[in-house]
Design a protein around this nucleic acid. Structure first.
Length: 958
RNA sequence: GCGGGUGUGGUGAAAUUGGUAGACACGCUAGACUUAGGAUCUAGUGCCGAGAGGUGUGUGGGUUCGAGUCCCUCCACCCGCACCA
């Protein structure tokens, strides 16, 4: 029987489903293993070949761990709330739940065809009320908690109230926005409303008026990580700053732990660095500068308090709250104009306009806190409102931006560095600087001076040592329909939580998925009684949660997906513990991965789970890129005309060979263009569907004509051989480039086992690589070759019993060793190569020995599970191959009596010499030197030195 | 500018602790078989050279008996961050 992958794969997929082969059960007698791939957003386009890459890897690893005796958890689910389904709903009126359901169904069909070892009984969907009930519940816990910096963990808000009642907020070490202090008595005297307002400044999720990134096109606010290059990550729409009342997450409370605990996890340096950068810790001091001749102080933050004597002016952000009050009357207009100009610039302009130095003097002066000297106060947009205090002490000799600014506006640049010239630029070398002209800091190296300066600043009460983070609290509200509703209602504009027994708060029906006329989110369209909860208030919260809410804890739900009493039971969370291997794209570096860590730490603090990092090891799979095809179009800007397409290879011909131009010109002349207009013809590349290609760049013009209207009556100019060529380019797979490759047709043509092996065979998992189906035949042939090892020439199953040949045993054990080692270091591509080598060798040896093949089937089963099950059954086994034991490597089979030593002269390999492996170094040396071939290379000389590495190499130095 | 990563045949790549560079596959060439099919099989295939041989892992240098691998220099490309005080 030929290798009939279609029947085999259908058969075993059914078997696994019927027997619940991959159902995970808590079994404390076995070590556990948790493999996880990032769950997908089920988009309308379905899976393309890039999606399964990570799933295949985690599936292979999960299957391997199972064979190694681990109790394995390998689940899958859907991140099913999100913008595309809602955008579609807005266009069509179709409820996003329906679209989402359809998309999930399609995803599931595609996934099922690939033979994954997912435990589907544990599937989660973030948009399922039974799931988001717990997302809402976790939100409530965050609301009911505050961050105690003393114990360095989150605590119940009651412990904070207790502190307030005992001694006010003065001694309370908390992560908070609260600035005003109050006594115990004052606290007790506050009204309920006032108390709630204060507590809001401490809660881990809180409602506040904050500057948010508003995206008008999407009609919602966006988190910082959802913005790339000043525009929305999804859709590329402009984003503006807007003051809005929003829910936020006090992730900044965890900044230090999020930073430090990176040391405890096995992730790539790149992701860790991105997170460090995002958190952006800087250590320094905050210092108060008094304003001359008026009330008020300016607080600045600096990482270089050692350079304070070099401060010769101050710069405030144009939006700084003190700007208007300090500006001298004669500068009012200039300052107002500068502020106006700065306000006009979008975030993007401001970023791209870095080189332009602008600023405006306010006419006010500050007093240097040590020298008492008057220094001018400027405003400039190189100082950002959002970082530190929005004000800096400018030290032009030590900071290049300050230096540039000083030069530009002709401000003094006093030098406080010993033996350093600052006339050409600032000196920012913290390691080698020695301070001078700085009173008590004189002759101190910078690092020591920083400490001394902070000490002195604190002693004089003009500031304090301080650590700043770039990390901002995360905006948690979205003005959208298709997300988790908040378990919150309002009474007198005060938010209250919906009781636990009312959860989940499900999404109410609305007539449209658009904002209301007065700009309220779509949920405001739902009348009060459309909500399925009872609440004693004016209205429900109209915002929904962002996409990252559900994905911040889904890995926990898999452990206990049907629990109705808790988001996960403590017992199950203790058993499955951290995700041992997490595979997914690196694009989530500062979003999902940071938020999931944050929630994990919170749930750990509250005692619900006993680990504080979610993902112990992570691998970021590379992208699979598409190979787009473009046709070269010649067109005219203004006139409506049929376009014309030119074979790509003609474009670059020298002018005298470009007769094709004439055809183009007459084509357009016929359409009514005049000779001047012909000169205005332009060329551009239009993407076309890659399936229209025949071969590398050749296009089928007839197919192209029938593919799209614009090609139907177009002129195609072929080359001399009558071919029409396209331009190829490697880029991200996307619908608009028509370069998306789905796994479906490949599974149809070659089978899932082939696709699984091929995706692994392409190269290292982490690397991005272009998709190219040319090589898939080679992998398919290997599986057929493997199949033939078990079959005779008539294609009948035939294996021999008894002892295996020594050579075959060597092949087997070499393969066991390599495949095992490769899996242990996640080198999935070399694994496939090793199977190919084994199949080639055993074919040569004509080996069909049962004991050898049996072990080989087990080895192959994680990669190609269907064919492995089939052959396993043919070998007479009753149980699934997934229940087998991973073969044990035995070194003895690899021991050889002879070894062909490569003999080098001066490091260059010249010939090989077969010698017994047991031979001593001295004897090897003798044998080598007396060999016939050695004479030629010795040229009669005596060797200076002979290096013999037994069993490896001989090197003769002449 | 800063941080991370990658540079090896025509292509995807391998070489785990420094020890035969290019395994395995694609492609290509030649041949065999066949009622030419993008099937199968055999042989070859880094480059230069008829051969002996020379040369070769982005560049230049260094350490070493020996370097794709370790150290320094420079270059190219990809990703992330970017007036962060």
């Amino acid at each position: 029987m030929e290798y009939d992958f279609q029947n085999i794969e259908a058969k075993w997929q059914k078997y696994w489903a019927d027997h619940k082969t991959f159902a995970a059960k808590e079994d404390h007698s076995l070590p556990k293993h948790y493999s996880l791939s990032m769950f997908p957003y089920p988009s309308g386009a379905g899976l393309h070949v890039g999606h399964p890459l990570g799933y295949i890897a985690s599936c292979i690893y999960a299957r391997y761990k199972k064979l190694k005796g681990f109790n394995v958890l390998h689940p899958m689910g859907y991140d099913s709330f999100g913008l595309p389904a809602e955008q579609y709903a807005i266009q069509t009126g179709q409820h996003p739940a329906i679209t989402t359901e359809q998309n999930i169904k399609r995803y599931r069909e595609q996934l099922d065809k690939l033979g994954f070892s997912f435990d589907w009984d544990r599937e989660v969907r973030t948009s399922d009320p039974s799931y988001y009930k717990w997302t809402q519940w976790i939100f409530k816990q965050l609301y009911k908690s505050w961050y105690n910096k003393e114990s360095d963990k989150a605590e119940a808000i009651e412990t904070l109230i207790e502190k307030f009642e005992k001694g006010g907020n003065k001694g309370v070490q908390a992560a908070t926005d609260q600035k005003e202090t109050f006594t115990a008595e004052e606290w007790k005297g506050f009204s309920e409303k006032e108390q709630q307002k204060i507590l809001m400044n401490y809660r881990l999720t809180f409602l506040a008026d904050s500057w948010v990134n508003w995206c008008p096109a999407l009609g919602t606010v966006l988190a910082n990580d959802e913005i790339k290059d000043g525009v929305s990550e999804r859709g590329g729409h402009p984003v503006e700053q807007k003051l809005m009342r929003q829910w936020s997450m006090r992730i900044t409370a965890y900044a230090e732990r999020l930073l430090n605990d990176l040391e405890t996890i096995d992730w790539t340096d790149s992701i860790k660095d991105q997170q460090r950068n995002w958190i952006g810790k800087s250590v320094g001091a905050s210092v108060l500068f008094k304003i001359a001749e008026q009330e008020g102080v300016i607080e600045i933050f600096t990482t270089r308090p050692d350079t304070i004597f070099g401060a010769s002016f101050m710069v405030l952000a144009p939006e700084h709250e003190l700007v208007d009050s300090i500006t001298a009357p004669e500068y009012k207009e200039l300052v107002a104009e500068y502020k106006r100009q700065a306000g006009l610039k979008t975030e993007r302009d401001r970023q791209s306009d870095v080189k332009n130095i602008t600023g405006q003097f306010t006419g006010a002066f500050a007093l240097h806190p040590f020298t008492g000297e008057k220094i001018p106060i400027w405003i400039a947009d190189y100082v950002l409102t959002g970082y530190g205090t929005g004000a800096v002490m400018a030290v032009p000799c030590g900071d290049q931006r300050d230096w540039d600014f000083a030069k530009h506006f002709d401000l003094p640049i006093p030098n406080i560095f010993k033996d350093v010239d600052v006339s050409e630029g600032a000196y920012d070398d913290k390691d080698n600087a020695v301070i001078t002209h700085s009173d008590f800091l004189n002759d101190l190296p910078a690092k020591k001076a920083i400490k001394t300066a902070i000490h002195e600043i604190e002693k004089r009460g003009i500031g304090k040592g301080q650590t700043n983070y770039r990390l901002r609290d995360a905006v948690f509200s979205r003005q959208r329909y298709w997300g988790e509703p908040f378990p919150v209602y309002y009474k007198d504009d005060i938010p209250y939580l919906i009781e636990d027994d009312q959860l989940p708060v499900t999404l109410p029906e609305v007539d449209k998925y658009l904002p209301t006329e007065d700009g309220e989110p779509p949920l405001a369209r739902a009348p009060k009684d459309a909500w399925d909860v009872k609440f004693d208030g004016d209205r429900m919260e109209y915002n929904t949660m962002p996409g990252w809410a559900g994905s911040s804890w889904y890995f926990l739900r898999y452990m206990d997906p049907h629990n109705e009493k808790a988001f996960v039971s403590k017992e199950k969370a203790d058993y499955w513990n951290q995700v041992d291997l997490y595979i997914g794209g690196s694009e989530h570096a500062t979003g999902h991965l940071l938020y999931a860590r944050f929630w994990t730490k919170f749930l750990f603090d509250m005692g619900y789970i006993s680990f504080n990092e979610p993902f112990k090891k992570m691998i970021n799979q590379g992208m699979i890129l598409g190979n787009s095809a473009f046709v070269h179009e010649v067109y005219h800007n203004s006139k409506l005309s049929n376009p014309c397409y030119v074979s790509r290879d003609l474009i670059d011909l020298p002018p005298h060979e470009s007769e094709w131009m004439d055809s183009v010109n007459s084509f357009f002349l016929k359409q009514g263009l005049n000779h001047d207009e012909i000169k205005e013809l332009k060329g551009r590349n239009i993407p076309v569907d890659v399936s229209i290609l025949k071969g590398e760049t050749s296009l089928d013009i007839d197919m192209l004509r029938s593919w799209r209207k614009e090609f139907e009556n177009a002129l195609f100019i072929e080359n001399k051989n009558g071919d029409f060529h396209a331009l190829r380019e490697i880029e991200k797979m996307s619908k608009s480039k028509f370069n998306v490759q789905t796994p479906d047709e490949l599974v149809e043509k070659f089978g899932a086992d082939t696709l699984r092996c091929y995706e692994m065979f392409l190269g290292p998992l982490e690397q991005s690589k272009p998709w190219d189906t040319q090589g898939i035949n080679g992998v398919h042939n290997f599986l057929r070759k493997f199949w033939r090892l078990f079959h005779n020439e008539e294609n009948e199953f035939e294996v021999t019993d008894g002892d295996a040949d020594k050579k075959s045993l060597k092949t087997l054990h070499k393969t066991i060793k390599k495949v095992t080692e490769d899996l242990d270091r996640f080198s999935f591509n070399t694994g496939v190569s090793n199977f190919m080598i084994a199949a080639n060798e055993l074919t040569d040896q004509k080996c069909n020995n049962r004991s050898v093949l049996k072990e080989l089937v087990i080895l192959l089963s994680p990669y190609a599970p269907h064919i492995a099950e089939e052959l396993w059954q043919k070998l007479g086994e009753k149980e699934s191959v997934t229940k087998a034991q991973w073969p044990i490597f035995n070194e003895e089979y690899l021991v050889e009596a002879e070894f062909a030593y490569p003999v080098s002269f001066n490091g260059k390999m010249r010939f090989k010499l077969e010698l017994p492996t047991s031979m001593s170094k001295e004897d090897v040396e003798k044998e080598v030197l007396s060999a016939d071939e050695a004479q030629k290379w010795l040229e009669g000389k005596t060797p200076k030195k002979v290096i013999v590495v037994p069993g490896r190499i001989v090197n003769v130095v002449v």
